[in-house]
Design a protein around this nucleic acid. Structure first.
Lengths: 122, 122
DNA sequence: CTACTTGCAAATGGTTTGCAGGCGC
DNA sequence: GCGCCTGCAAACCATTTGCAAGTAG
């Protein structure tokens, strides 16, 4: 997985501490606290590598920058609140892979739910 | 819905003829055939307006430019071939909205299937 | 010492916007 | 004629890359 550097350690720790998917800029802000001078390019390069190594998985939403979260978790989906914009993890999977027309081989799927979160609904 | 212009007509006709979601550039290429000199900014402006008017719906997937398709169709999902990159419409809906934890009010969902399309599987 | 890493700045690619001229109504 | 539309170019924003200097092993 390459060399051990302060930057990479800091970036990995940020993800380990995170309770939700993070954007590159959020990672930069948090990691820069322990590694002053950290550059955004380094964050992107490390995120890319950690993703390639299977340590991170991308969480993308239309019109927003990519977010990433730890890969070592159960398969799950995401919920985005239309009101506050927060992204929540939704445990479990209720979208079987086998509903494509004949001939299509489905190997993976993504499900996003949108609506109002408990906080905003109150 | 605003004035009638050659540009807007051409752009709408492109979508009416399309068999799959299109990117802004794909729309530009096709619409420019009937309206030489058409600019990409005009395409974006019209797509934005047609979307706001509910005539188009966005079809987004990670790391790729937004695509759009006609809104007046049954709810359906999309399949993206990992091999050739083409995006297919998948009729029907097999992802019920009611699988979020208590407190979450789900009003909308998006489902993407990934894998191999019939052509590439052959 | 050598190769991998980093920071900076410039480049990229999709999308948006400012502006002056054009055209639908 | 008024105000919406358009084309062009410049601006934006997230992300990537070139490059020279730094550092892990």
């Amino acid at each position: 997985m390459g060399r051990k550097t302060d930057q990479r350690d800091a970036i990995r720790n940020v993800f380990r501490r995170a309770q939700r998917p993070l954007t590159a800029n959020e990672v930069l802000d948090r990691a820069a606290e322990s590694v002053p001078g950290l550059g955004i390019a380094t964050v992107y390069r490390n995120i890319k590598r950690l993703h390639e190594d299977g340590w991170l998985i991308p969480v993308d939403l239309p019109g927003e920058p990519s977010r990433f979260e730890l890969a070592d978790r159960e398969h799950h989906h995401h919920f985005r609140c239309d009101d506050c914009g927060k992204v929540y993890d939704i445990p479990g999977c209720h979208a079987p892979d086998d509903h494509a027309p004949a001939g299509f081989q489905v190997t993976r799927h993504e499900v996003w739910l949108f609506g109002m979160c408990p906080e905003c609904a109150a």
